[in-house]
Design a binder for these strands. Structure first.
Lengths: 336, 336
DNA sequence: GGCGGAAATGTTATCGATAACATCCGCTTT
DNA sequence: AAAGCGGATGTTATCGATAACATTTCCGCC
């Protein structure tokens, strides 16, 4: 009566089931050497009391929690937000909670602070959505025995990593425009220190060179519609520009507006291809041809790698590259 | 030499400073009865060893962690994503980590599962981004002594809550359109079981009634551009529709496209006002007049309420209503 | 039928912090 | 000068789980 408020502990379950608390622990952790009959009795007691193990106690003794830390840029960008959401879903299905640690900037000091917070919590593993080189550097301090997986990081780092094949996505987009008959393709990239941007630039340039097309000067911007608009204002007044590939859909939106204002029709005068396939892309004016990234697949793959590292700490530095998909809409139809 | 890997514990600090571990604990928790000189010595030892307290141990003995659980709909919607990000920033500044628990649907079972996961982690408090009535119901099981704050929940629930003043936002939008000379204003709402939607509908209807304007039938949709487009296709063929207020910017985007396809010019033939002010709204065709929500303010206010509840558990059911702001752009200019 | 060994279970130590209580010390108070 | 008090510190118990080791039970086999 006096302990209505206190939630039941392992010993309470043990008493009810007529066994020792250690046996309860064994049942919970699926140890082999427990008689089927006792296992059932213990399970029944657990159910009856509504017992739920205390994660803090477990974390204390094992030195590791059921918590996965995510280091991400503080951002409401579609990509990172979606990635986080998908990852959380996947982790929950495997019984892990996710602690997010946003950083305003991906500089060394900010990242260190976030990583420290996660280490305080004794996270079982770390996922780093590390889109820039500075981020990768800042992660030197991570203890070697802590499982870590990078998302969208540097494929050349040799670290366990999952990423969409940015190069392939950019190639598909560029190829699509060239195939439609354009002489060359202009590219508005994201910030050049992001790996995503770098990969897209590389794919774009390679494809042009292979096709023997002239490579126009690179235009770079942040990821915003605002900068897309500014860049678009310039491109709109250059008659020789007939095909534009942008590093994300929001840039494309800004460019569409700039072209519209200047009276340049899309796709008749200028074709535009974006990247991401945000849910709204199909409702731009005109509907946007873009490259879809399978964020869900990336998130699940990242979790898989992480769980793998937790099981056998032999650091298998797997890298998983997820293929993107070109979604053709009106802003850049195929050859008509 | 043999314990390079193990991170220092409180006793290590105590030994180095020549005090007991309890004194170290007192220093860490800012207890008053510690001589200034010892305090300094302990601090020095902490710094020298790079000691960081073990949160799991603390959580075990206090029964509460430095972790705040967030229950949110699994969503990449602009609002929730921004809210989460802002909240995490604020929490980090106060030394709290944030564990996210997404749900696919805000139904009772899903929410219970997420809440349970959070309780497992012994979260110090809970933030519920509970946009629907079903969500509110599902939260009956939360222990009474756990600090909880609702974001965007039911203002009538009497629970601690922070929300943007949806009614005022909708009033401002509707008022703006009426003032521009429109006879009445059509409204495309979000799902009617969301509190946000309900508030916006209410504000819209009230304003029309007060102005003596006819109240057109309510059109409701989900939050997507896709449904905005479908609804827009219908509205576009009704000549009497000259002003549309949508429950969010993505719906507005779909409607803009539908109007465009049908040759109805915005704002000349039809004026459109959205809600949210997503970063891209200024780059729609035409730039969207919309209602900006101060997500950052909401997040910080929510954290404030939560910390307040943690300090004195006398459940002060404060409610904070944050005013929204009408952002006027071309899609619905003022009277010209 | 007793013995060996594995399977099943119990006992005790441990993780690293805070809580509760005990102690020591110096100073005021009467 | 003895008593009393409160500030500063130390000692021990405790949270609830797992790990390591100890013990009992069960079974097959010679």
């Amino acid at each position: 009566m006096d302990k209505v408020s206190r939630s039941p502990a392992m010993t309470d379950v043990a008493r009810l089931a007529g066994v020792s608390h250690q046996t309860v622990s064994r049942v919970l952790n699926d140890h082999p050497n427990v008689k089927e009959q006792t296992r059932i009795r213990v399970r029944a007691a657990i159910a009856e009391l509504g017992y739920r193990p205390n994660r803090a106690a477990r974390a204390l003794v094992t030195g590791r929690s059921q918590l996965i830390g995510v280091v991400a840029r503080n951002s409401t960008l579609f990509g990172p937000a979606t990635m986080l959401s998908e990852f959380e879903q996947a982790a929950a299905d495997s019984g892990f909670a996710v602690s997010v640690g946003s950083v305003r900037e991906l500089d060394r000091a900010s990242i260190s602070a976030v990583v420290d917070r996660h280490l305080d919590q004794r996270v079982a593993g770390l996922v780093v959505i590390a889109n820039t080189a500075s981020a990768t550097e800042a992660l030197a301090e991570i203890p070697g025995d802590l499982p870590v997986v990078f998302i969208d990081g540097d494929p050349a780092s040799g670290r366990p990593l999952v990423t969409v094949d940015q190069v392939a996505g950019a190639r598909a987009a560029t190829r699509h425009l060239l195939d439609a008959g354009h002489e060359t393709v202009w590219h508005v990239s994201g910030p050049t220190d992001w790996f995503d941007s770098a990969g897209r630039i590389q794919g774009w340039r390679q494809t042009l060179e292979e096709a023997g097309a002239e490579v126009p000067p690179l235009l770079s911007a942040d990821w915003s519609a605002a900068e897309g608009y500014r860049t678009g204002q310039m491109l709109a007044r250059m008659p020789e520009v007939t095909a534009i590939f942008t590093a994300n859909d929001h840039l494309a939106l800004g460019i569409l507006r700039a072209l519209h204002e200047r009276g340049r029709r899309v796709p008749h005068d200028v074709a535009v291809v974006g990247f991401d396939d945000v849910p709204e892309a199909a409702y731009f004016i005109p509907p946007l041809t873009t490259v879809r990234q399978a964020f869900g697949d990336v998130a699940r793959a990242a979790l898989g790698l992480l769980l793998g590292q937790m099981r056998d700490s032999t650091g298998t530095a797997d890298q998983i590259i997820v293929p993107p998909q070109l979604i053709v809409r009106e802003s850049a139809p195929g050859r008509v």
